[in-house]
Amino acid sequence: MNNHIEIVKACIKGDRKAQKQLYQLFADKMYGVCLRYADNADDAKDILQDGFIKVFVNLKQFTFKGSFEGWVRRIMVNTALEKFRDKSYLFAVNMELGYGTRDTEYDHILTELAAKDLLRLIQELSPQYRMVFNLYAIEGYSHKEICEMLNIKEGTSKSNLSRAREILKEKVKKYYGVKINFV
């Protein structure tokens, strides 16, 4: 962590070497984050690029109090959300679907799936479902925080989450359903 602070300070002064070092430190982790929020690898690359530029431009605002990695990660997530807002013009529908249904029968299959498969499933979700699922299930934000981040109603966030879960379950069944018979 102390190591980070030195690099960050050098970056603020505009030291190109330090900037590259900082990029190399976080590139893989952050690309992992971007891949989850994007439709595809190309979009993820754009988010990563824009996100890092924001990191370098706004580095002065980092207070050195919290975790630096968390700060960078938040910038990446916000950049991804901005991209999503720029791109998608979906109709906001407020679907109330069953919330909190039992997932047990899919858990067996799920545990068999590798990160790459799971990533593909998430990428296939429609943007809004993907955002909500990422923010809630993986990032750990509450519905209240999500509705502020996405400027949607709390109810919409909840229904989007449960719809995302439904879709993910269907996809697991469709893609890997056969596999379960052999397990």
Binding site: K29, K45, L119
Partner: peptide, 10 residues
Amino acid sequence: ELKNYQHTPP
């Protein structure tokens, strides 16, 4: 699986 998922960017 995905919270700390890493991948080398292009």
